[in-house]
Every structure is written in structure tokens, then in C-alpha cells.
Design a protein around this nucleic acid. Structure first.
Length: 246
DNA sequence: GCGACAG
DNA sequence: ATCTTGTCGC
């Protein structure tokens, strides 16, 4: 199993990372509505960590947007490329996520990631960063409001309220299930906010979190488990690391 | 200066 | 993110 290293020139300090964000933020495309919800393909990406072993596992799971059936999936394992710093999450997740996306056998269509896009201290969160680097339409669906404020949306699925940075709307708190805590949706790249909300609702017929996120989360955790087990057990060929049967 | 803070 | 048992509910 090859391991993704830290890219050459990857920022080593918070200062450098913030400078990269300031430089790339102008490339975000905001005047496209994005793919039609319920059509084509939607891909979820997620990452799991084992800091002690210095391991990162990323997963990309492609779903048919109409049926939500899994069409394809891929994983990648790498080294931790950056510590977790609020506002700099992208530098921790992106290298391995890009590797997983590269391994997909088909185009990903719209990408849905954990975390934020324009709802970010410098308006350039993970979803925007990933979009600018790949050129793909990307949205961010987060589980927490980060540093932003919002008024509780109505209790019914579909209700939403502005996610605010002061007076600026940077995303929306969206109720995906009746009476359940909302998720926080923001634009990443090449998708409108309204369309991002519609996609999120289309991906949540049963659970609070999008099927894309749930699928990618389960897969990257499994990939991390396998990688950690192989790291402990010494170098072995992928062909001989099948999971024991019962 | 202090606390809070996506994953 | 990750560490972790039982438990309430469909």
C-alpha cells in the first residue's frame, strides 16, 4: 500500500497557510448554479486520523444522485500534513482527499465535504479550497456552527436560517430531519447557496447527515483501521491482508 | 489578554 | 477528529 506524502511546497507554518488562502480565495467561482439536484453523480469525501501513528485515511464515495446507490469508491492513506488549527483544516485534509479522488474510476460530479466553504474566517474553507484545486463543483456540510451565529430554524425538515458572520450571510443552518439539530451548509465552488441546500435535502432522506458524508465516513474509518493494523503488523502485501472471516 | 473554535 | 457503555426509541 503506497502512502501519500506531504506535497512539496506544502505550508509548514500557520502564517504560510493563511497566505495561501489569501492568494487562492480570489479563484472561487460563485456565479454558477451548479449541477441539478437529483441528477448525475454526487461524491462524498471524508478523512480519519491516527495522530499517534501519523496516519491519515481519506475516502471518496460516488453515489447516483437519483437513487443514492453507491456507484464507485476509492481510498488513500497518507501522512499527517498539518496540525488541526481552526481555520486551517484544509491543509490537514486536502492532500489525502485529492489522492482518493484521483483513484476514482469515474468523474465525481458534485463533491460534498465535511466542514465549510465560504463560511470561514477568510472566506476560504475546505470546500472552497478543494473546489479551486480540482475545478469541481463543491459544497460544505458541517455538523457545528463554528464561530458563526444563527437563529434556530423552524422544526420541520427543509426549514433554514441564515448562518451569519456579523451581518454577512456566509451559509445556512438547514434542518434535514424534523426536530433534529440542523446542519450548516455553505458554498464551496461553482454552486449557489440555494442549490447547495437543495442538494443537501436530496441527500438526507433518512438521516441528519448526507448519505455522501455517512458513506465516506464509514469507508475512511475502515481504511484507517486497515492501515493501522498493517503498520503494527509490519509490511505486508495488500493481497495477504484480507480481514479474517469471523 | 482570555476564551472559542469546521475536523 | 478521538476516547467509550449503556440506553431510549422506531
Amino acid at each position: 500500500m503506497t502512502t501519500v506524502g506531504v506535497p512539496a511546497g506544502w505550508p509548514a507554518t500557520e502564517e504560510e497557510a493563511r497566505a495561501v488562502q489569501d492568494e487562492l480565495r480570489g479563484r472561487v467561482v460563485r456565479d454558477e448554479p451548479g449541477p441539478e439536484p437529483g441528477t448525475g453523480r454526487v461524491t462524498g469525501v471524508d478523512v480519519a486520523y491516527d495522530d499517534a501513528l501519523d496516519l491519515v485515511a481519506a475516502a471518496a464515495v460516488v453515489l447516483d444522485a437519483a437513487t443514492l446507490d453507491v456507484v464507485a469508491e476509492a481510498t488513500a492513506v497518507g501522512r499527517v500534513s498539518f496540525p488541526y488549527v481552526p481555520g486551517l483544516l484544509a491543509f490537514r485534509e486536502i492532500p489525502t482527499v485529492l489522492a482518493a479522488l484521483d483513484r476514482l474510476p469515474c468523474p465525481p460530479g458534485l463533491v460534498v465535504c465535511d466542514g465549510y466553504g465560504l463560511a470561514h474566517p477568510r472566506r476560504f474553507g475546505l470546500a472552497s479550497h478543494l473546489g479551486v484545486l480540482t475545478g469541481l463543483p463543491v459544497i460544505g456540510v458541517a455538523k457545528n456552527p463554528f464561530t458563526f451565529t444563527y437563529d434556530d430554524p423552524g422544526a420541520q425538515r427543509g426549514c433554514s436560517a441564515p448562518l451569519l458572520a456579523g451581518a454577512e450571510e456566509v451559509g445556512r443552518a438547514l434542518r434535514t430531519r424534523d426536530g433534529v439539530k440542523p446542519v450548516f451548509v455553505s458554498v464551496g465552488h461553482r454552486v449557489s447557496l440555494d442549490n447547495a441546500l437543495a442538494h443537501t435535502l436530496s441527500l438526507t432522506p433518512r438521516y441528519r447527515l448526507p448519505e455522501t458524508t455517512r458513506r465516506a465516513d464509514a469507508l475512511c474509518r475502515r481504511a484507517l483501521r486497515d492501515a493501522a493494523r498493517n503498520a503494527r503488523g509490519g509490511a505486508q502485501e495488500p493481497s495477504m491482508r484480507q480481514a479474517p472471516t469471523s
